[in-house]
Amino acid sequence: MRSSEPRAPLGLAFAATAGLLFMLLPLALIFLYAFSTEERTYQWPPPGLTLKWFAVTWGRVDVWQALTLSVQVASISTLLALILGTLCAAAVSGTKFFGRETISLLVILPIALPGIITGISLRSAFNLMEIPFSFWTIILGHATFCIVVVYNNAVARFRRLHGSMVEAAMDLGANSFQTFRHVILPNLGTALLAGGMLAFALSFDEVIVTTFTAGQQQTLPIWMLEELVRPRQRPVTNVVAMVVVVVTFLPILAAFYLSRGGEQTVSGMGK
């Protein structure tokens, strides 16, 4: 008999460590470059370290505008996704009905198909219906792929909720609305929080669909894309990149702590 926790083979340990480093080192590099004194190239090693660029970035109006737009878009998309996704998850997990599978498929489709398809579909639909690009056309696209994140989290939690708990509440005198408020919502709470934060992160970061649904407005990712294609102010881009990493990490860390011991809530996502 082998022991239940065997030592890992050396080759595996090496390959796994290398894989993990491959994933994490490039992100670490982002942090370092934000402090580089170099202005015109991506020179390694950085000739010197400075905090100057943080101050410069802080003073940039275009960065602030892009950031504000991104936060607004992400907040509203998340709110819409929370409402639509939770209701849909409740319906799908509560009962078996005709077309249940179709609805699951429909919810997952926007992330199962490449983002460019979602993007160009929406763009051509806006063109056909002569809807001008605006803040709301961005939201329309973002909420569509955010629904699935909330939906997945909520469905996983509903699965753990005993079906008899809803019956117990009704048995003890709670009508449908009271059951929702006193039993379902408190048990769904952390799952919704986790799903909402992930939806926010997804929307905050989205670029592919946004390039098709935004007019002249720049979300932060669109701003970055411009910089990537035509670098003009590398140091500012370095700082923005680092800030974006930090801003997306915080919800992930929080979601991780919220869902610890539970199912993996942040897995299985696409863009």
Partner: peptide, 29 residues
Amino acid sequence: FYLGIMLPLWASYLVKVYAWKLILAKEGI
């Protein structure tokens, strides 16, 4: 491991591409 996989997964797509622009640059690492 969980965070080591989750963070790169959820890190901004553009930032990840940007990181590689830094890495692959002629004067890069």
